[in-house]
């Protein structure tokens, strides 16, 4: 390992990852922060200060949207976990061989398709002239067309749909590794379904639950398409606000501040999630 050629080989291997991480991840985020703390005082004239952040906290629309995005994302994460866990458990523990593979693939196929296509599907289903409204009318359950799109429930349906696979995959992986005999032992010792779930299955699945929740939360928080298309113009999603500042208003300084706040929130949640479950990022993310 100490010969010159292997040293050279080592540096050759180190170069690409170094360039990638420094030029595309680290420096841009430092740059983002630098821009976010510069205030425009005239054409091409800037001074350093936290004015952009002050604007954010001073204007209720901004921080309320921020809070709303966070709360909706947490809600979406919780829903995804509640809806996804039984499915993951079913795939991992109640099916074998070919059935298992088929069900797993059926879960995965929708997620290889662009998010845009999936959201488009929900629009066709939910809108006023859409499939569900028309079906309900022809069944005589409602008298006129109903608009199911452009509300928070529609956003929630879309968010859960978009991210549920990222909950199911880590859950299936961890539940698969739970030996059936542990569940049998729990029963043998007098456990009930509830107590075995609480004491054996869920503690075992905790790494999967944490990594699933982290990924789903981040995907929801950073989602742009679903809230915009299913929630309409007034969906008040934080990424939409960042987009407006950057592309429509061309106020990059304020946009950067918003972006940095979003990054801070998502990092904080990831950090908290890992701390609470005593896991490391490598263990949690490396398993995908």
């Amino acid at each position: 390992m100490t010969s010159d050629t292997s040293k050279l080989g080592f540096y050759l291997l180190l170069a690409p990852i170094f360039l990638w991480l420094v030029l595309l991840i680290i420096l841009p985020h430092i740059g983002l922060f630098m821009v976010s703390i510069s205030e425009k005082i005239g054409p091409r004239e800037y001074q350093t200060g936290f004015g952009n952040y002050a604007t954010f906290f001073g204007e209720p629309l901004y921080w309320r949207t921020f809070a709303r995005t966070a709360i909706m994302s947490i809600l979406a994460t919780a829903l995804t976990l509640i809806l996804g866990f039984p499915i993951a458990y079913y795939i991992a523990k109640l099916t074998r061989g070919r059935t298992k593979t088929t069900l797993f693939l059926m879960c995965m196929i929708p997620f290889w398709v662009s998010e845009l296509v999936r959201t488009f599907g929900w629009m066709i289903l939910l809108r006023e002239t859409g499939v569900i409204s028309t079906t309900l009318q022809s069944l005589g359950l409602i008298s006129g067309p109903v608009e199911l799109l452009y509300n928070d429930a529609a956003i929630m349906v879309g968010l859960v749909y978009t991210s549920i696979l990222f909950m199911i995959v880590p859950l299936v992986t961890t539940l698969d590794s739970l030996d059936d005999s542990l569940i049998e032992a729990g029963y043998d010792l007098g456990g009930t379904t509830t107590s075995i779930m609480r004491e054996i299955v869920i503690p075992h699945a905790m790494p999967g639950i944490v990594s699933g929740c982290i990924v789903v939360f981040m995907l929801s928080l950073g989602n742009y398409l679903t809230p915009i298309l299913l929630g309409g113009k007034d969906s008040l999603w934080f990424t939409g606000m960042i987009y407006t500042q950057f592309i429509t208003r061309f106020n990059w300084e304020f946009g950067s501040a918003l972006g940095f706040l979003l990054l801070a929130l998502s990092s904080a949640i990831v950090f908290l999630g890992l701390k609470m479950s005593r896991q490391s990022l490598s263990d949690t993310m490396g398993r995908t």
Partner: peptide, 20 residues
Amino acid sequence: PPNKRPVSMVFQHLALFPTM
């Protein structure tokens, strides 16, 4: 059901709960 039987079992690989 197994949880109502007055028998206990030592499993082949013991099935000790690793999380406890």
